[in-house]
Design a binder for these strands. Sequence first.
DNA 1: TGCGGAATAT
DNA 2: ATATTCCGCA
Length: 498
Amino acid sequence: MGGAGEQTVERCCAGMDCNCVSDLLLPPVPALWTPGIAFPDWAYKPESSPGSRQIQLWHFILELLQKEEYNSVIAWQGDYGEFVIKDPDEVARQWGLRKCKPHMNYDKLSRALRYYYNKRILHKTKGKRFTYKFNFSKVVLVNYPLLDMANSPFFLAQNHFNGSSTAPDCSPEVRRGGPRDWKRAIQSLFPRLPDSARGTSLFDRGTTAPAPEGDKLRLDAFPFLSTGAPCYTKPPSLLGPYPRNPPFDYPWGFNPYLPGAFSLNNCPKLPPGSLYPSQFYPNPLQSSLSQLPHPFSSLLPPGEAGGGERGAAAGQTGGTNGTAGGQPVRLIMPPYPGSLSLGRTDVGTGASLGERAEANPPAAALGLGLAAIGLGAGAGTGRQTPTERRGGVKLDPESDSDLEITDLSDSSSENENEHEFSIRKESRLANRSQIVLDGKKGSVPPPISSLPPTASPHPLKRPMPISPPPPSLPPSLSPSVALHDRHREKETLKMIHS
DNA sequence: TGCGGAATAT
DNA sequence: ATATTCCGCA
């Protein structure tokens, strides 16, 4: 081990519980961070899943990525979702701090990252040192299978996200709030919804189900969830047509370059006029939601319905709203990439080709790109450099999320290779994806058919039709999406109200 | 550098 | 389950 580890000892892990001092010393919320910025409770695995309660590495990576002050350590670079670990030792060190593993080093950390390959959370950008790429489309609920909305509070954000912890995972406090709060959270998320919708309509409460999971979110209230609308977040200008082969990126649902995704600074490639709506959210959840295919917008109050003004693109700056406190989340429905013309460049190029098949799955199918855990806070912490901070405390918003990847598309990959992967290890994931249709559960993930054929970029097919608003997203289009959205929103609202 | 198996830890 | 550790291989 590298030198990285030793210093961490100073504040980490002293014992069973790791007395990482950081939590003691640091204010609960970094000053600059929008209060409450942290991953929502739903991002944490239920207690039932013991092993997964701690922050996951990919989540941690996203955290760093969204912090400006870590730009010299790790940053988005290159392709969509692609990031470069500029200072492996530091990243490892930070990870070690978080996990209270003083002896963490890049070798070990990278091993963990490699495990993500199969899970398709990440893949390596071949040919580029320390460069990996997120497959955000999968970084969606696995724990809370998106489709299994019943249990997926994935959008349950709490405006007050746990007070965001900056504390290391090992800190007990981090664990506050659990899935059990999700219902409450969701309600807080959509304060303006009629109670009927929020409190009741949105949930099909199992009469008996006490468990958090007992309250099922009505899927029908969130059409998009079922529509599988693709959520390509990549700015159109960056997107390229689906290259037949790999060199294309995933149509991820998450667009790091998207302004609300992470702090702007981290989104070097975001074209100024991106089509995306300008809603940005200071808090991760919001960001996350913003990435969701709009359905959520249905839940928003009319004036704010995401679809709203898509035109506004630019705006962002995260944070603008300071919302953290409780403002409603706005949702954005990203346009279908397919309609866009892209012209991505680098991407694949060589690198991609070389990648393992898994790498390109168009996975995208999943419409939710939830991953955006952006905080708009980059600025926050003051620009201490990580290194400078080394000894100091690091302020990370806590966020252990347990999001896992659910890839509907998995099934759909165009690559045969993916199958391999799927078969090999994903069966378990498959289980997780379930669609609850009005009470019925589909097991899912029917293959979203696969990938976007070259010609039709739009992979999105929903695995299963969902009830209410007939999702008819044409596989190709985007412009229409907005209309569809609205339509759906209306429909949704009706449903909710009814 | 990067990969992935195996054993082990939480 | 998700790493963490080691380690041999390329």
